[in-house]
């Protein structure tokens, strides 16, 4: 009896050897994640149930009141709408443009390396720096866009000051900014496709479009899926360009959710409602990502 027990104990200790080894290797990232991801996340969820003081400490437990307040708030609903519109404007367009550029840059031509560098170069520019440049381009009187419109005798546009244009303008700069990264990932995906597949299809007489539809897109689907997921999450979390270009204005038209969280927390010092918004955003991204995995995965072909 005793013997068998110690045996069992020993074997548990022994059997967990792999798990313990794995844990040891995981330890650094577990520590990092705990400090910078898990702790803030749980702290946010915790705070979303409280009213806070100026220093962001929980002061009064209010249960779900922060959430009910949010759902009734017109400003918050507006912010959600703006965010979804922004996602809609930037994600599909950005990926399609990146895909077209990647297809072009994947051709075997002399000097194509130059274009590959140019197309991916926006990856090397920080959001802040590029936003400042776009600020100049959008400038109502000295900006290049209005100068161009002037040349063609078109009416001037208040790019960042007109509520109907502001979100589009920010989207435009965001698309430009994200193209480099998407382009690079998609180009990598394209280069991974076996050249012989195309040669075989050419012998069969398949046209360029046929090859694109029947070979390139299906073979690229895992990469496309990846880039769509990343772009969606990125779009939901946009902050930098808003802060520099519009500060959420004009008349709240570009007050995307992350910017709204920032304002709520660090301008209005309402850490409780800000946390509730953050949790809400987290749930939104989670749902969208799960949906995407459920719907998208069926169409994705993995090697």
């Amino acid at each position: 009896m005793m013997v068998s027990q110690t045996k069992a104990k020993k074997s548990v200790w022994k059997r967990s050897l792999d798990a313990r080894t794995a844990l040891l290797y995981l330890l650094p990232s577990i520590l990092l994640f705990s400090v910078f991801v898990f702790y803030p996340m749980f702290r946010t969820i915790y705070l979303s149930f409280f009213l806070t003081d100026q220093n962001g400490n929980a002061a009064l437990f209010v249960g779900l009141e922060n959430y009910t307040y949010l759902l009734e708030s017109v400003a918050f609903r507006n912010s959600i709408k703006a965010t979804f519109l922004f996602v809609l404007y930037t994600v599909p367009t950005g990926i399609i443009i990146a895909l077209i550029l990647a297809l072009l840059a994947n051709e075997k031509l002399k000097g194509i390396g130059f274009f590959r560098t140019i197309y991916s170069s926006t990856m090397g520019i920080s959001v802040a720096a590029s936003s400042v440049i776009w600020l100049f381009l959008f400038h109502p009187s000295i900006g290049m866009f209005n100068k161009l419109l002037n040349i063609f005798n078109l009416p001037q546009v208040e790019w960042l000051l007109d509520p109907t244009w502001a979100l589009l303008s920010v989207s435009l700069s965001t698309i430009w900014l994200n193209t480099g990264f998407s382009f690079l990932i998609l180009l990598g995906g394209l280069q991974n496709i076996d050249e012989h597949l195309y040669e075989s299809a050419r012998i069969d007489g398949a046209s360029y479009w046929y090859r694109l539809r029947r070979i390139t897109i299906p073979m690229l689907s895992p990469t496309l899926f990846f880039i769509v997921t990343i772009s969606l999450i990125n779009a939901f979390q946009t902050f930098g360009q808003i802060d520099i270009l519009t500060k959420g204005g004009p008349s709240q038209s570009t007050n995307l959710i992350v910017y709204s969280i920032y304002k709520e927390a660090f301008v209005n010092y309402q850490f409780g409602t800000a946390s509730a918004q953050a949790v809400f955003l987290f749930i939104c991204i989670l749902i969208v990502t799960i949906l995407q995995f459920k719907l998208g995965e069926r169409k994705v072909h993995y090697q």
Binding site: D194, H196, L197, E199, S200, R202, I203, D204, G205, A206, R214, I215, P218, M219, S221, H301, Q303
Partner: peptide, 20 residues
């Protein structure tokens, strides 16, 4: 003439089957 007009078929060394 492009490959499609030469009226031939080819088997590649690595088969080049469409994996999807």
């Amino acid at each position: 003439l492009p490959p499609s007009k030469r009226d031939l078929s080819m088997v590649f060394q690595n088969y080049a089957l469409y994996p999807h």
